[in-house]
Design a binder for these strands. Sequence first.
RNA 1: GCGGGUAUAGCUCAGUGGUAGAGCGCCUGGUUGUGGCCCAGGAGGCCGUGGGUUCAAAACCCACUACUCGCCCCA
Length: 427
Amino acid sequence: MTRYQAPKGTQDWTPDKQPYYRWIDATVREVAARYGFLPIDPPMFEHTEVFARGVGTGTDIVEKEMYSFETQGGEPLTLRPEFTAGIVRAYVENGLHNQPPPVKLYAIGPLFRYERPGMGRYRQHTQISLEVIGESDPAVDLEIMSLASDIFETLGVGKLRFEINSIGCPACRPPYIRDTLVPWLEARREHLGETDQMRLAKNPLRVLDTKDPKVRALMEAEQVPLLADSLCQECRTHFDTLRSYMDMLGRRYTVNPLLVRGFDYYTKTVFEVQSEALDTANNALCGGGRYDGLVELLGGAATPGMGMGLGFERAALVLEELDIAPPPLRTTQVYAVWFDEATKRAAIQTLDTLRQAAIPAEMAYAQGKRSFKSQMRAADKSPARFTLIFGENELAQGEVMVKEMATGNQTSVRLDNLVLWLQGHLG
RNA sequence: GCGGGUAUAGCUCAGUGGUAGAGCGCCUGGUUGUGGCCCAGGAGGCCGUGGGUUCAAAACCCACUACUCGCCCCA
């Protein structure tokens, strides 16, 4: 018999891992609601063109990380590698611009990227994506970042530190790249490594983001001209206003003028949150930015937008690293044990009543006999607070023995009063 | 895509060429009706996969796969 394995870079969310997933999911939805966000669930695959145009043909994601396939009818489709392009497509297609702006949406679900898996990096991973479409106010940028912060604070992780930057707009970025950055880099071409030379040719801005220590040192020593100094008035005002809002709220952030992100659609604000608890290479917890040209690019009217993604798997890693336990999923409050077929029947009947009263209850099973001790052990292992002991003597009186496992105290309770008694004691 | 490490029970890991092990976890029992501690018993492994060397391979060699660390990129 062949033994199958889950495909590379995928994982099973087995029951023991579910508490983290569910907890993060519930927290994210609750916090998003605080800010007025509504859920949207776009399909998990789109016409390839949506991502190619939306994310940008020169990006790593589109160039080498997409799960693309053709339908039997020859339609080119792609499993979504990110959320924003699909959500914006849905916004345009469904005429959501007819809602009073801005439209605040969030989506939760799997994303697919064909890349080398590693700690905290999967080929199928889960993200929440938050999008505000139709408003250019920097207060929206602030809200998006606050939301990420609030999610982690609600989960018990301390305040996050943001790295932020402005990467300008079509009015100021292209001239900076063409007239300032590229000439500066060309003059130092021989100092660049292989990948940075390729970036210089293809996407010069990304050289700023290089991890090559020699290039970083060079950029610092010879004062690489920064986009921050070439921003147009509008972009500069936007960034300054955002920073003043963050200062006002006491947000922890650092301006990283070298921060560039991997999607072509970003304009003005970009940001990232690194986890201090995760000192691996894959430590970005959230990332996002403004995309004022994307709606138009995907066929809608010129409409500003701002969004971010937050990774579930990495959030779970941080929680584990900090020993923050999620609330348990199994909520059984009452566990029934018995002695023989007659008392077992009484247990079955009673459980039926308890469950209809919405009291989570379980019992010991056995085909035939099972030692009382074994049943008590099972009761002990269950999360139930109370064990119901169905014995002959009590049953003859119309009663059942109720034992509180934490204290060992036990008392007889009339069966016809059991629901009320439990409701009172379970709070 | 490129380099390094690892792969034995559900988990953490011993085992350096001669019949597969421990701890934890799991199951059952410890006579008449009480869990945790303790005691006894039990289930569970083609030792990652395929080839090679050898009388003999979990061990040595090769390849593959998966995981993992770094590069790259990102959540």
